[in-house]
């Protein structure tokens, strides 16, 4: 554990709390992609299956349980409690374009041909593109509530912080995980456009609006 990874994980936790706060205080999940949230449940469940087989640390176990539970809770909020505020007609990204290639990539790039490793690898690839339905929705509507942009910024910061974490681990432990690093770089790259607008507009007190 190093400071980059720790703050990355905190940022990830913060993003989830911001999202739950947004949905429950506005009593609406407007602007949030259900597809992206469903993909995160898939990511966490497939990756954290090792909860039952390998123990890393109490921190690790608690975080895994939290991520699975909170992502399921968000789906419940969107699908049941605040269902009328969820508008599927603007959440139109085709999931098969994401899931299909991730299955293929996992079959090619993995650390072992067994169910746990294949699902782990699949979850890494899927996480790297899981935000796309959300970003696509943002692009379509051209604007977002400020709280939603804070959620995305915290999520992007989590990914960005994992990069110095890997650099640090390479020098301190000689540890390199090429699958995580490659997928992580792609994932962080997807946030670059968003971050540009976030820094130049939202943090200057303006509304998040994309140029027409």
């Amino acid at each position: 554990m190093n400071i980059f990874r720790f703050f990355g994980d905190l940022s990830h936790l913060a993003s989830i709390f911001i999202l739950i706060h947004k949905i429950t205080t506005t009593r609406s999940c407007r602007g949030i992609s259900f597809k992206t949230q469903a993909l995160y449940v898939t990511v966490f469940v497939t990756r954290y299956l090792d909860l039952f087989t390998s123990y890393v640390s109490l921190y690790n176990t608690v975080m895994k349980i939290f991520f699975i539970a909170s992502s399921c809770y968000i789906l419940y909020l969107m699908r049941v409690r605040y269902r009328p505020t969820n508008d599927p007609s603007i959440d139109t990204f085709r999931l098969e374009y994401l899931v299909g290639p991730c299955v293929v990539l996992a079959l090619i790039f993995n650390y072992g041909y067994n169910p746990t490793e294949l699902l782990w690898s699949f979850s890494i690839f899927l996480e790297s593109v899981a935000i796309l339905p959300q970003l696509f929705m943002l692009q379509r509507t051209g604007e977002a509530e400020t709280i939603t942009t804070h959620y995305l910024a915290a999520l992007g910061a989590y990914r960005a912080l994992y990069i110095p974490n890997w650099i640090y681990r390479y020098f301190s432990e000689g540890y390199v995980d090429p699958i995580s690093v490659t997928a992580g770089l792609v994932q962080t790259g997807l946030y670059l456009d968003f971050f540009y607008v976030y820094f130049t507009k939202v943090l200057q007190g303006q509304k998040f609006e994309l140029p027409a």
Partner: peptide, 10 residues
């Protein structure tokens, strides 16, 4: 081999 470290990242 990264898998031997049992994927300690979240």
């Amino acid at each position: 081999d990264p898998s031997s470290q049992s994927h300690d990242e979240l």
